Amino acid sequence: MEMQGKVIIVTGAGGGIGGALARAFTAAGGKVVLTDLDAAAVTETARAIEADGGAVAVTSGDASSNEHIDAVVALAEREFGPVDMYVANAGIGGAAGLAATDADWEHAIDVNLMAHVRAARRLVPQWVQRGSGYFLSTASAAGLLTQIGSATYSVTKHAVIGFDEWLSVTYGDSGVAVSCLCPMGVDTKLLRPDGIDGDDAEKLMQNAVETAGDVLTPAAVADAVMEGIADERFLILPHPEVLKMYRYKGSDYDRWLGGMRRYQASLMAPTGS
């Protein structure tokens, strides 16, 4: 996909991967609408892009809300024209296991999965009529592998990849391109939130990610995305080793599960003498 002149919506654009993607898209000539639950953060991202001469509009709200999705699409159409790409990037973490409540699960499913479903429901039919459109999801390597320490995160990221696969199979021959971004560790507040000192489960999850491979900058992830969407590649893997791990998992599931249990045990083992 060529970025020049394209109208793009990016959710979760107040910083991290979403902010880096917005900067990369505008630098390549895209016209970007930014949204985030954190109004102050997304406004600051927009100001930085405007200072660099980028074409940007900004709003804030809940990316999982049908009403907000409608409002963001309307803003994009009013400011720039029909939407060419939707980047479903907003997401939440959480170290919830079996102790997670129904409300915890519902919140994770709503933000990490249903936000994508609702956005696709809103835009894909008009892309099919037009014969072109692009849906980019930020999932995670946790959706291809799993996430030690967090059931809600791992399960919803698996679901996102399944939904993206379905979108590609169902609409790929109708002009709708789909890409799924699956990084491991990225230096964002999702990986390194404030105030987790006393939360052993969150520290376990963070340690698992940080010891599995390099922790990339959001800008490095954005570079990988730009390369991936230039080829309209489905899986975008900023950490190439994820593909090797995924193939190993599929070749011998029981051996892989045993290895993951040993890895988890090593993370939980006491350190020092």
Rank of each mutant, 00 (worst) to 15 (best):
Q4M: 08
I8W: 05
I9P: 01
T11N: 07
T11V: 04
T11I: 05
G12A: 04
G12D: 02
G14N: 07
G19I: 14
A24I: 10
F25K: 06
T26I: 04
T26D: 05
T26Q: 05
A27S: 15
A28M: 07
G30S: 13
V32K: 01
L34G: 03
T35L: 10
D36I: 06
D38V: 01
A40P: 04
A41F: 01
T43I: 01
T45M: 12
T45I: 11
A46W: 02
R47G: 09
I49H: 07
A51L: 11
G53M: 04
G54S: 05
A55H: 11
T59K: 13
T59L: 12
S60Q: 03
E67V: 15
H68Q: 10
V72N: 06
A74M: 13
L75R: 09
M85N: 02
Y86S: 06
N89I: 03
A90V: 03
I92K: 11
G93R: 00
G97Y: 03
A99P: 01
T101V: 03
T101F: 03
W105Q: 14
I109H: 12
I109K: 12
V111W: 12
N112A: 14
L113E: 11
M114I: 08
M114L: 12
A115N: 07
A119R: 12
R121L: 07
W127F: 03
V128C: 13
R130D: 14
Y134M: 04
Y134K: 03
Y134E: 06
L136A: 06
A141N: 12
A141F: 09
A142Q: 07
A142V: 06
L144Y: 14
Q147R: 00
G149E: 05
S150A: 15
A151G: 03
A159N: 11
V160Q: 11
F163A: 12
W166T: 12
W166M: 10
W166D: 05
V169I: 13
Y171F: 15
G175W: 07
G175M: 06
G175C: 07
V176Q: 13
C180I: 07
C180Q: 02
M184R: 14
T188V: 01
K189H: 04
K189I: 00
L190E: 00
L191R: 00
L191A: 00
P193Q: 01
I196D: 00
I196V: 15
A201K: 13
A201F: 03
K203D: 05
K203Y: 09
M205N: 00
N207Y: 00
T211E: 15
G213H: 05
L216Y: 01
D223C: 02
G228H: 09
G228L: 06
E232H: 02
H239N: 12
Y246I: 02
R247K: 14
R247Q: 15
Y248Q: 13
Y248K: 13
S251R: 13
R255G: 06
G259R: 10
G259C: 08
R262I: 11
Y263M: 05
Q264S: 15
L267H: 02
P270K: 14
P270R: 14
G272E: 04
S273P: 11
